[in-house]
Design a binder for these strands. Structure first.
Length: 539
DNA sequence: CGTGAACGCGCC
DNA sequence: AGGGCGCGTTCACG
């Protein structure tokens, strides 16, 4: 059953399946939703991030929704058109691409939510696999609900523990504009050991000059390049960079801006990445460094249940490609160990680097060396990503298992490809076009795996979310609830006496997710679950 | 002076 | 010489 929520000049309207409409005063909207939630409807609205937070603040939790904006973005991708822009949120429009629409429409001319919903249902029904597209729409929308709920409850964060770890690493907090003691000391050490005069350590170009003056042959100050050097100044320099990073990215300023009342509240952006992964906006939620994870702490009497899908992407590739040998290699909890046991490669490290290279398009080093052996043992899996890469190199689009499509390469890309294949093309033009072609191929190669992994993860999250919620236990924050999602990892904050059922939910939902995304598949998707007080104690 | 690209690095 | 991101800093540019 669907209930469409529509904003009208005269107020809020709710329209149910029969077309019956009711005008609802804004102040009683939450009460209306709470009451009708008993009918288990799917709420259809323009934008979960716009509608749901107010409901959550009013203590109303919704089981299912259909997010018109997110589904429009998916359908727009499939249909090769720009997404709708009438719903207020800025959609970046590139001024110089070929297919721009006039974006000067506004809410007065926008079609009503029931009309858009009807169009979307028709578009989904017209897809080659309508069931899959409908699943994708549902999973994407469920993710939007979970994102709003996680923002509402926040990630439990012990600000005092964070402060203490900063003091231990950096020394006491300095006044604005001054370096913390540890950085001051390390900068002095680097300067003394390089012995070439003052070293502007915070300026990469100047730092390169100083290093060169000290006789070190470097092109940049990237830490992987510095690690190859043998010089006494390198160790303190690397430590400086690491601590400086801690200070600027997750130091006291970050703590004051982002942690309040024991909670870190980032903004998650479902569908924020072309592949379907989430992005985040503010606070760097998806890049929480390991250095600060000890500050993520459960409340007293509660635990953090941290679950991680083991080797998600290679398993996704095995299922996508129907590679029975790789499914067999993944029968245990460690797929890489299974690859070694199959005899394809010598070591777990080779298996891991080789598979990552196959999925990312690595062409050098160990990754390239072991690729032929993987291709011999797992021809279907490797063939699948190779085909996706070749399609991208030709400028074709690829799609995930549930049908999310990769974008077309830009107009300039296509132009340079056709220029390079014409008679008068110079060698430089051809080389550049070849390089760009391979680069787009690496993108599409990864797109199919990363995007399908995102679909599995969304399905997993939706299943966990559904299992955790029990209406009779009261508001979300008083019962086990999701607090964090990181591509292939979920965190649940749960009362200690509910931890067992949370673990079961995480395992059961992972089992279901494989069925939802792939149907019958021999590939398993094990999750490792840790029950901890601090995030840093997981894995 | 403000803006935006580039860098470098954190996460998966 | 590897895919996807966000963010803080520096630096070039108008």
């Amino acid at each position: 059953m669907h209930i469409v929520v529509d904003r009208r000049p005269e107020g809020l309207a709710v329209v149910d399946e029969s077309g019956a409409e009711a005008l609802v005063p804004a102040e009683s909207f939450a009460a209306h939703v709470r009451e009708r939630e008993a009918e288990h409807p799917r709420w259809v609205w323009t934008d979960t991030a716009q509608w749901y937070p107010a409901l959550l603040r009013a203590g109303v939790r919704v089981e299912r929704c259909h997010d018109l904006r997110l589904v429009d973005a998916i359908l727009a991708g499939i249909e090769g058109r720009p997404p709708r822009t009438e719903w207020g949120k800025a959609v970046p429009v590139r001024a110089n691409t070929l297919f721009d629409f006039d974006s000067g429409q506004d809410a007065r001319t926008a079609p009503s939510a029931p009309d858009v919903f009807a169009e979307q249902r028709a578009a989904i029904a017209a897809q080659p696999s309508p069931g899959r597209t409908a699943l994708l729409a549902a999973a994407e929308s469920a993710g939007a609900l979970a994102a709003a709920e996680m923002e509402f409850v926040g990630l439990p964060w012990n600000a005092e523990a964070h402060h203490q770890l900063l003091v231990e690493a950096l020394g006491e907090r300095p006044p604005p504009g001054r370096r913390p003691p540890a950085l001051e000391r390390l900068a002095g050490e680097v300067e003394a050991l390089l012995d070439v005069g003052p070293v502007p350590i915070d300026s990469p170009p100047e730092l390169v000059k100083s290093l060169r003056r000290a006789g070190l042959d470097v092109q940049s100050t990237r830490s992987w390049e510095l690690k190859k050097l043998d010089h006494p100044a390198i160790a303190p320099l690397l430590q400086y960079k690491s601590l400086s990073r801690l200070l600027t990215a997750n130091g006291w300023n970050w703590l004051e801006e982002w942690v309040h009342d024991g909670r870190f509240r980032p903004t998650f952006v479902p569908g924020g990445v072309v592949t379907g992964r989430w992005a985040s906006d503010g606070g760097g939620a998806l890049q929480l460094p390991k250095q600060v994870r000890s500050a993520v702490q459960a409340d007293a009497g509660w635990a953090l249940v941290v679950a991680d899908a083991a080797q998600l992407e290679p398993r996704v590739l095995a299922a996508l490609s129907g590679d029975a040998a790789m499914a067999q290699a993944g029968a245990g909890v460690d797929l890489y160990a299974g690859i070694v046991a199959s005899g394809a490669v010598e070591s777990r490290e080779h298996a891991k680097v080789g598979m990552l290279g196959a999925m990312y398009g690595g062409t050098t080093g160990v990754s390239a060396q072991v690729l032929p052996r993987l291709a011999r043992s797992f021809p279907r899996a490797i063939g699948f990503v190779e085909a996706a890469a070749r399609a991208g190199e030709r400028g074709e689009r690829v799609e995930t298992r549930l049908g999310r499509t990769s974008p077309r390469p830009g107009a300039e890309w296509r132009e340079r490809q056709s220029m390079a294949s014409s008679d008068g093309a110079g060698e430089a033009d051809r080389a550049r076009a070849r390089s760009e072609s391979r680069s787009w191929g690496r993108f599409t190669r990864n797109f199919v795996v990363q995007g399908t992994a995102a679909e599995w993860a969304l399905s997993w999250m939706a299943g966990v979310r559904r299992r955790l919620w029990q209406p009779e236990l009261g508001p979300i924050e008083q019962q086990p609830h999701l607090v964090f999602f990181l591509h292939d990892e979920l965190m649940v904050h749960a009362p200690l006496d509910r931890v067992d059922e949370v673990q079961a939910a995480l395992h059961d939902a992972a089992f279901d997710a494989a069925r939802i995304v792939f149907g019958a598949t021999p590939v398993t998707f094990p999750v490792t679950v840790a029950v901890v007080q601090r995030y840093s104690d997981a894995k």
